[in-house]
């Protein structure tokens, strides 16, 4: 089962996705792919807090801020269920590498490739993204390019996943696949 979940912020995407991943995994390995690159002490504290809260839910944390398919090298992908929350953060890491002055224009293509590979190999994958496309602002090109790149990846994932869900007020709206 490969599921893609998006929607506006604070609609319950993460908790719904966690719950789905737990149900899909049953007694099999359950992995949380952590993408955050900590910048300061506050980030480290936040990571530790999240790690503790997930540990109680049976998640094993895999740290993989870029080249996401590499988690296959050190986890039981044939039996495993992977939760990636979020595609948005992964795109940031891939598109704006630390110490680089320009965004990496190859990032959306690379992320599509890496995620396709992960989805093809792993038993279950639950992906969470953010629907950041319905604002009024005339954003600078820098921001527009990021939105466009994330949308390209979102559309690719929606095409290849079995289930596509938009969360609204913690209610799933199914665009693809049966009720879960």
């Amino acid at each position: 089962m490969k599921a893609f979940i998006s929607g506006g912020c604070k609609n319950g995407k993460s908790s719904w996705a966690e719950n789905l991943a737990q149900r899909l995994a049953g007694d099999s390995p359950l992995y949380y792919i952590a993408t955050m690159i900590p910048c300061d002490a506050e980030d480290h504290q936040r990571i530790e807090k999240h790690r503790l809260s997930r540990a109680g839910k049976g998640f094993c944390t895999l740290e993989q801020p870029t080249r996401i398919h590499q988690v296959l090298d050190y986890s039981d992908y044939a039996r495993g269920t992977y939760l990636l929350d979020s595609v948005t953060a992964l795109m940031l890491n891939e598109m704006y590498p630390r110490n680089a002055s320009l965004p990496d224009v190859q990032a959306p293509h690379r992320v599509c490739h890496d995620l396709s590979f992960l989805l093809a190999q792993a038993k279950n994958v639950v992906l969470v993204s953010d629907y950041i496309y319905s604002d009024t602002g005339h954003y600078p090109k820098y921001t527009q390019d990021y939105c466009k790149a994330l949308a390209q990846v979102d559309r690719h994932l929606a095409r290849i996943c079995d289930t596509v869900v938009e969360m609204s007020a913690h209610q799933p709206i199914y665009y693809k696949g049966g009720n879960l």
Binding site: S134, T136, G137
Partner: peptide, 17 residues
């Protein structure tokens, strides 16, 4: 384009739009 889900724009032109 659906442009309705962000914060109310400060710019009066964007708000009117």
């Amino acid at each position: 384009d659906d442009i309705f889900c962000g914060v109310v724009p400060i710019d009066s032109h964007l708000r009117a739009w």
